[in-house]
């Protein structure tokens, strides 16, 4: 019985159906965090066209904004940002020791608010491109 059997951590993701609310909140928070950092590192280079000149800057931004795919991605970005903000607020309250026993409800509320804001913003983002 010397060698113990290591089942590894792979089974963790195989068990996603058994994840609890707090676990999902963590998974989503981490995922949205990666997206936002990635976006930040793209956002600054795009804005860097301002170093070249005013016309290049205007042309780049308006050029990107005229692509339907960019508009759709922007709705996604908004949803990601809103969730990260809402769940981040939830986590701050948890850090302050407030509402720990209601952590599941507050996670569902974060999801719901994210969904509402994302859906409500669709007309604003889509207008003028389709």
């Amino acid at each position: 019985m010397e060698e113990a059997y290591d089942r590894g951590v792979i089974e963790d993701f195989g068990r996603w159906r058994e994840f609890s609310a707090g676990m999902w909140a963590w998974v989503f928070h981490k995922f949205t965090g990666w997206v936002l950092v990635g976006y930040l590192f793209v956002h600054i280079p795009v804005l860097s066209t301002a170093l070249v000149g005013a016309e290049t800057y205007t042309a780049t931004i308006q050029g990107l904004e005229s692509l339907p795919i960019v508009r759709v991605l922007e709705v996604g970005l908004l949803a990601v940002a809103v969730f990260h903000i809402m769940n981040g607020t939830r986590l701050l309250f948890i850090d302050l020791g407030i509402g720990l026993e209601r952590q599941k409800v507050s996670f569902y509320a974060s999801l719901l608010i994210t969904a509402i804001i994302a859906v409500a913003s669709v007309p604003t983002f889509i207008s003028g491109v389709f």
């Binding site: 707090g22 963590w26 952590q103």
Partner: peptide
Amino acid sequence: CQTQFSCTE
């Protein structure tokens, strides 16, 4: 700790 609440549950 990443406050996943798994332990508490």
